[in-house]
Design a protein around this nucleic acid. Structure first.
Length: 501
RNA sequence: UCUCGCAUCGUAUAGUCAGGUCCAAUAUCUCAGAAUUUCAAUCUGAAGACACGGGUUCAAAUCCCGUUGCGAGAACCA
């Protein structure tokens, strides 16, 4: 960490040509933005904010821009930006143009402050840290909210102490109220008396977030700001800056935050953090998107949506105002639906890409052959019925990758050994029947086994369970005939022979 | 403390704006059952909520007031 400069790929802010706002105002093309600060990963709330921005832009034939709020130099590393980009890409959320670095636009921010100063909308404040601390202390003692008292607002600059670098503050109206017309929250009114003269430029000349956001949103031609409702009070302050510059205030939509299962703000404590963590847990990006869009947004009782449907149905007005909790059980269920509906080869490809990220994935990677990949594909229909995640899927296919003699789970061995090894005896007498088979496919194997079972006067379970455990080492698996068929005759018979008694 | 926001089954939402069709719906979770070669998937069923208190009204989940609870912001952080 530290002040690592951006790689040139992201250092585009200064050079990128920003669209002319007036042009877009004329054509009324919707332009949204996703503006995360690079914290090292794309967290789930951010992912949903990005999704809503993306959906809204697409639903209206508009654009979504990506701006990295990297003015906090200590946290803004190349890796952190890449993590953001990775997360968005995984979710399939793309943006128009190059990512814009907020830090790279500092000169423009300062330029706007000069204008504000020249128009008398802002002023230099020479109050020291001690004075500020005193103000807060006094406010607390009097049980008032801590606010800057405006002591330099109308003071003669000639009184400025020598050698003190001032901050620049905006002149917030003293009375009246600032109204935020929010698409989600409705008309929210803030008494101006509660909004103090916030700092635009620090004494070291760097712009504050509050200033940067406003200038960037304006310059980027943003028509609709969609962000977390933790910014709702900021919206009032930012409106004041917009108005001071005589700029149109974009339409705003402050969406409620996502909390963890315990109702507290989502954090590392809740296990998953970044988008890549969800990928490693075996969730499909399309399932993730579907789950996320239903957190706060609804279209009647509908649960599943394709991207095309969302583009048609999504509106900001339909977003609810109350915060929601993240529920893994529901995500899993949805993911299961998407897995069952997914193409078999697509699933194999997805598994292949996440293998390096999942626990125990190496075991599979080391044994990955073309033949096994084909077996995996053909076993997929039986496998995906039983899986909620890609991790479940590959774990269910473990028997395809295992080498003889197969490791036996305790319960599996129990089935073979029960009734003095009745299962092993069944297997022994079944082997010649299978060896005699000329063709080896699901139907023929099934016919042979069923005929044998009938001849012996047994229930199918008495035969199928021993076969399952002998061929997979487990008590649960896809249908035994599918397992036998996909293993192939030689491997199947050999595994049976290993366990025959 | 101040400003602002939120409150329907455990969870996500529908219903609230335009009061009656709501003894509140759907999905998930939980439990029971059916079917089954195992486990899933599937099917059937059960359980489970309008935060509380007033008011308006013939009628309130829906409108009004208050209370409580939860959250956000209140920085020379973003």
């Amino acid at each position: 960490m530290g002040n690592v400069p951006f790689c040139s790929q992201f250092l585009t802010a200064a050079s990128v040509a920003l669209p002319c706002p007036r042009f877009f105002a004329m054509t009324k093309q919707v332009i949204t933005r996703f503006a995360p600060s690079p914290t090292g990963f794309l967290h789930i709330g951010g992912a949903r904010t990005a999704l809503f921005n993306w959906l809204y832009a697409r639903a209206n034939g508009g654009k979504m821009l990506l701006r990295i709020e990297d003015t906090d130099r200590a946290r803004s590393t190349t890796e952190a930006v890449e993590a953001l980009v990775d997360g968005l890409s995984w979710l399939g959320l793309d943006w128009d143009g190059e990512p814009i670095s907020q830090f790279g636009r500092a000169d423009r921010h300062r330029e706007v402050v000069e204008t504000l100063l020249a128009n008398g909308k802002a002023y230099r404040c020479y109050a020291s840290q001690e004075e500020l601390a005193e103000m807060r202390e006094k406010a607390r003692a009097e049980k008032r909210p801590p606010r800057y008292d405006g002591r330099w607002r109308d003071r003669d600059p000639a009184e400025a102490p020598k050698g003190v670098a001032p901050v620049i503050r905006i002149k917030t109206p003293m009375d009246g109220e600032t109204v935020v017309n929010d698409v989600v929250q409705g008309e929210v009114r803030f008494p101006n008396a509660d909004l103090d003269d916030l700092v635009l430029l620090r004494s070291d000349g760097t712009p504050t977030y509050m200033l940067a956001v406003v200038v960037d949103d304006h310059d980027m031609g943003i028509t609709d700001i969609v962000r977390g409702d933790d910014h709702l009070t900021n919206a009032a302050r930012q409106s004041i800056i917009f108005q001071a510059m005589d700029w149109d205030v974009p339409r705003m939509a402050h969406i409620p935050l996502i909390y963890g299962p315990d109702g507290a703000k989502l954090s590392k404590r809740h296990g998953a953090i970044g988008a890549e963590a969800y990928r490693a847990m075996g969730y499909l990006p399309e399932a993730m998107r579907n789950y996320l869009v239903r957190l706060g947004w609804a279209h009647g009782d509908d649960e599943f949506f394709t991207t095309e449907e969302l583009e048609r149905l999504f509106t900001l007005e339909a977003i609810g105002k109350s915060p929601s909790r993240f529920d893994f059980a529901k995500l899993e269920n949805m993911n299961g639906h998407y897995i069952r509906a997914a193409d078999d080869h697509h699933l194999v490809a997805q598994i292949k890409t996440i293998l390096p990220e999942i626990d125990g994935g190496n075991w599979f990677s080391e044994r990955w052959t073309e033949q096994r990949e084909e077996q995996l594909s053909s076993a997929m229909p039986g496998l995906k019925e039983r899986a909620k995640t890609l991790v479940d899927l590959i774990d269910g296919a473990r028997f395809l990758f295992a080498e003889r003699p197969l490791p036996m789970e305790e319960k599996a061995a129990g089935i073979l050994d029960a009734d003095n090894g009745a299962g092993r005896a069944v297997i022994a007498s079944l082997i010649p029947v299978l060896e005699a088979l000329e063709s080896w496919n699901v139907a023929d194997v099934e016919t042979a086994v069923r005929e044998y079972t009938e001849q012996q006067g047994l229930k199918l379970g008495k035969v199928a369970q021993p076969i399952r455990t002998a061929t997979t080492g487990r008590t649960t698996s896809p249908g035994v005939f599918d397992v036998m068929a996909v293993l192939g005759k030689d491997e199947c018979v050999s595994r049976l022979r290993d366990q025959a008694g």
